[in-house]
């Protein structure tokens, strides 16, 4: 198990021209295993940065990131890549899938990288696709699926090998509201089933409603957390 996720006084700054932008500013946060958390805020609030840092895609300028026993800030680049591959499932806003592979091949592909072989891989891929409601569409390529269906494939891929943590960065940004809600419903359901920790970010007030724990960000700072009061 991955255990707790902790951000300890994390700051991430970017320089853009002569300006210094604080994408995250002294953020401290603990997430319990199995929690379904939503990062909410307008674009530029720091929610994507927070997600990227938790996922080991980005490193803080200062502060510490602990995911279970692992300190992401002390890992090398390739250790972090390996960590992502084996412990985290990702759903991105767009460009989630390999266009030349069918839905089931996309799911299998990541499992293959993880070292899962043979029939187990095939069965598992088929079963998660069924779980996300795509049975019958296994052989379609991404170009032959709707936006919502593509994101479902991405979700299926993210949970296929039952990772401890699933990160979804604005997964609904390109979807209409009905499809968005359905996708969130699906993720909630999977959170129940798999007991993985789920974190997703959104700027859509409609979507945020379904969150168990809601963390609101603005200008790189946590301004509210439904679990506790923020000073």
């Amino acid at each position: 198990m991955i255990g707790q996720i902790e951000l300890q006084d994390v700051t991430r700054t970017y320089t853009q021209g002569e300006e210094t932008i604080h994408a995250l500013h002294h953020a401290t946060l603990t997430l319990e295993p199995g929690e379904f958390t939503t990062f909410y805020g307008p674009s530029g609030s720091g929610k994507s940065t927070a997600l990227n840092i938790i996922g080991g895609l980005d490193l803080p300028s200062s502060g510490k990131v602990l995911v279970g026993d692992a300190s992401l800030t002390e890992m090398t680049r390739s250790e972090r890549a390996d960590f992502r591959l084996h412990h985290i499932g990702f759903v991105f806003q767009a460009y989630n899938l390999i266009p030349v592979l069918s839905a089931i091949e996309n799911v299998e592909f990541i499992m293959q990288l993880q070292g899962i072989t043979g029939d187990e891989r095939k069965e598992r891929a088929a079963s998660v696709l069924k779980q996300v409601g795509l049975s019958g569409m296994e052989l379609r390529r991404p170009g032959e699926l709707s936006g919502g269906q593509q994101q479902r494939v991405a979700v299926a891929r993210a949970i296929a090998s039952n990772p401890e943590l699933v990160l979804a960065d604005e997964p609904t940004a390109n979807l209409d509201s009905t499809t968005s809600e359905a996708l969130i419903e699906l993720m909630l359901e999977l959170n129940e089933t798999y007991k993985s920790t789920f974190i997703f970010s959104t700027h859509d007030p409609l979507v945020m409603k379904s969150a168990h724990r809601l963390i609101e960000l603005k200008d790189g700072q946590i301004i509210s957390d439904s679990n506790k009061e923020v000073a």
Partner: peptide, 13 residues
């Protein structure tokens, strides 16, 4: 973009 996605998923460069 696609390569970025694969790297993000943890694929070895």
């Amino acid at each position: 973009k696609e390569f970025g996605m694969l790297l993000a998923l943890g694929m070895n460069p």
